[in-house]
Amino acid sequence: MDHNINTKTEEETITSTSIHQESKLLGSNKSSYKQILAIGGGKGGVGKTLVTANFAITLARAGAKVTLVDLDLGGANLHTCLGVEMSSRTLSDVFSSDIENIEDLCAPTIVPNLQLISGAHDSLNAANLPHAQKQKLIQRLQQLKSDYVILDLGAGTSFNTLDFFIAADVGILVVLPEPTSIENAYRFIKSAFYRKLKNIEHQLDARELVDKIVEKKEELGIKTPADLLSAIENESSDLGGKVRLAMNEMNLKLVVNQTRTGTDAEIGFGVKNVCKKYFGINVDYLGNLEYDSAVWQSVRRRKPLAVEFPTNPLVATMQKMVGHIVAEQAEKIKNEKSYE
């Protein structure tokens, strides 16, 4: 049940205002302008589904039309925590059958304004999609009649996961304050960096230049992805600037989950700092989520935290994070409009 629908918290009001502002700016273009948020992080069990479900609920309650897509191909379970029966139609139908309209795959959830496309639970092959099918799926997702499409990605750094992450407007990384989780997150960022570089090399016709630089790696003293970006800039400021811009278009955000001490929460700033230096890209630290036993209780009850415990402080924290993202996107739209 949606306990909280009529009494909006301050954070929710802010998100609503920003969404309203966005709609106003977009006017009749609104239907073609949607934001895709991808949630990844490299490691399993770090809280990707917690963040995905509750971010989606926050946006839906603030008045946006939201579609959640369970892209944990091979290990889909988002339906469980949104009170949706595993639907007879899943993502595999996009590839295998003659689905004309992707909206047909959407199932309503217990939260108004929020619908779900279930993951491909039945097809092991789905976890390893050929490129053409991925492109098809991304195109279909862009056709959805939603203001926000939120992708819950699987663990690991397969090309599948990376390609959906790169295709999104905002890439959210969830980590735990543990060495293995941080290491995996870096591995994930590194893989996303090179995957993205490969994509844009092609788009910007920069392959020759990048190859030339990579060949002289030792000579040029390139040790990190950030060094590589600088070296491209040194060769051609114009191209280098474009590559750097494209890299930052991944719009990376970081959430540190299950923190128990202030030091745990501080790790986010460290990761942000190190990413800037090592990868040469900006990571925006959204904040931390404190360890709270209410989270596993809500998982047991198969209800999202925001539905089962709407007054839990973590819900307010996540609302604030969403407010930050929405306000930033509204600003971006505003700037784009002013360039037009």
Binding site: E183, T224, G270, Y278
Partner: peptide, 8 residues
């Protein structure tokens, strides 16, 4: 720090 050791 957990943030730097695996990269530097």
């Amino acid at each position: 720090s957990l943030a730097a050791y695996s990269l530097y």
